[in-house]
Amino acid sequence: MTGAAVTTSGLTKKFGHQVAVDGVDLEVPLGSVYGFLGPNGSGKTTTIRMVLGLIVPTAGEVQLLGNPLGRIGESLPRVGALVEGPAFHLYLSGRDNLRRLDAADLRADPATSATRIDSALDRVGLLAAATKRYRAYSLGMRQRLAIAASLLTPKELLVLDEPTNGLDPQGTREVRHLVASLADEGSTVLVSSHLLSEIEQVCTHVGVMHVGRLVAQGPVSEIGGDARPRARVETDQPQVAARIMTELGVRDVRVDHGSAVGELDGTAPEKIVAGCVQQGLAVTGFRVETPSLEDTFVALTGEGFDVSG
């Protein structure tokens, strides 16, 4: 097997005239936690559906755990998937819903079915609600059940599409821990989200989708690495501070709401503070800001998480 859990090349899907996914070359390295980002409607879910064999691509190739498009089914037993939210039978209990999925799996051992189901429920904290009807589950519980369903058998790859959708902050953090622990156990995780901050901390790699195209992809350090840290001086005379910063070699200095901001280009931050104070400036605050992945993300996909046409 190559070093990639998922690769696609030129992956394209058209629905009528609408191009939902346009020439996407995805590469999810084995063992990585790959954050698949993009605004709602940018083509993440359609890409994931093609990778899982639910949708036939209009053009392009897919490799899933070493198997090409026509043989994706051979890889699927090693893949756990949560696609576009949870979906279960309303009138069955959580446990019965998992029983049905396990029964459908030709490779799952019926002898260990009960213990595997309960340990999956336990892992997402649903064991106490196992006999409750799915109808009575809250959105957060439904989401957890869907994650439990993907954990019924050990998986090499987990594809989690918007796993934190509908979860409260507490639940979101638990999902993050779960993703981290799955990765620690050696699984590759492909996790999509339109809310970057929710998964940023656990990702080793990211890919950013925008209007059907993959606009950036790579290790987190490289994607966020282009931007240099910036210094911000808060003072009542920002114009003066800006002049001092420029003299000290800070680049792109701007005045912004009672403060001066510029890119540190090798200039030591402490020199800026010292310089300002020597000139008699009243410095009320000083900060060095490292641009977050979020800033990169916004730069790539535009402001706001609007639905892309």
């Binding site: 899982l52 064999g53 576009e84 979906a87 279960f88 459908a104 869907a146």
Partner: peptide, 12 residues
């Protein structure tokens, strides 16, 4: 109900 996609990814 959407359960079809989960059956197909089991895979069935």
């Amino acid at each position: 109900t959407g359960t079809l996609r989960y059956l197909l990814t089991v895979p069935v």
